[in-house]
């Protein structure tokens, strides 16, 4: 039941995008920059994975990248506009080192818990729930992934309107939860 809501939420923009074939084609033709950006990303990935630079492999890469671009440009950019994508990516790159620092701190905490002889007295698992202020799909997914990636907390359930349930392993990692990370993600995706 819960999962069906999530699926609908994730497939909503795509269904909206390809409402009819003619509308979808017109739309696909209109956002040429999105197509070009998708093609560039895919071609970089091809070069990285293949590692050969002769004409035969590059031609194969161009053909398959064009095909995959035509299939999946709606998936990569559901809104179809490139407005503010660059700024979001730059701010996201600024967010990653902070996230890594938090991951290392929290990992050390869990490592301390694991090797503590009286571990049973220290841990205190509970499920906490809170309401998040974020509302776009991408920022919710990023927030849920970040929560799961910092040890001590696992996202159990996310809904479309920002209702989170989080399984925390002890009090210390649970109580700091909705705070700074949410504010930083809101700043990255431009939602205040």
């Amino acid at each position: 039941m819960v999962n069906r809501e999530q699926h609908e939420a994730s497939s909503q923009p795509m269904g909206h995008e390809s409402g009819g074939t003619t509308a979808g084609q017109r739309r696909g033709l209109r956002n040429v920059p999105a197509c070009l950006l998708t093609f560039a990303i895919l071609f970089c990935l091809w070069i990285l994975l293949s590692g050969r630079f002769d004409a035969f492999h590059l031609t194969l890469g161009v053909i398959s990248c064009i095909m995959v671009t035509l299939f999946s440009v709606d998936l990569v950019f559901p809104e179809g506009s490139l407005q503010g994508i660059g700024g979001t990516w730059l701010r996201f790159l600024g967010y990653v080192p902070w996230l890594l620092y938090q991951i290392i701190l929290a990992n050390l905490h869990v490592l301390y818990l694991v090797f503590h002889p009286r571990m049973m007295d220290l841990i205190e698992p509970e499920i906490i729930r809170f309401q998040s202020k974020l509302h776009s799909d991408l920022s919710l997914v990023t927030f849920a992934n970040s929560i799961t990636l910092t040890p001590g907390t696992i996202t159990v359930y996310v809904s479309v309107d920002g209702d989170f349930q989080v399984h925390a392993i002890d009090k210390k990692s649970g109580e700091a939860l909705p705070g700074e990370m949410e504010a930083r993600i809101a700043r990255v995706f431009g939602e205040q």
Partner: peptide
Amino acid sequence: VGILRFPDFFTRLHPAGKL
């Protein structure tokens, strides 16, 4: 070690998935 020591599988996921 965390996979072996923790009491139930919700807590076991914490070390398993992220350490």
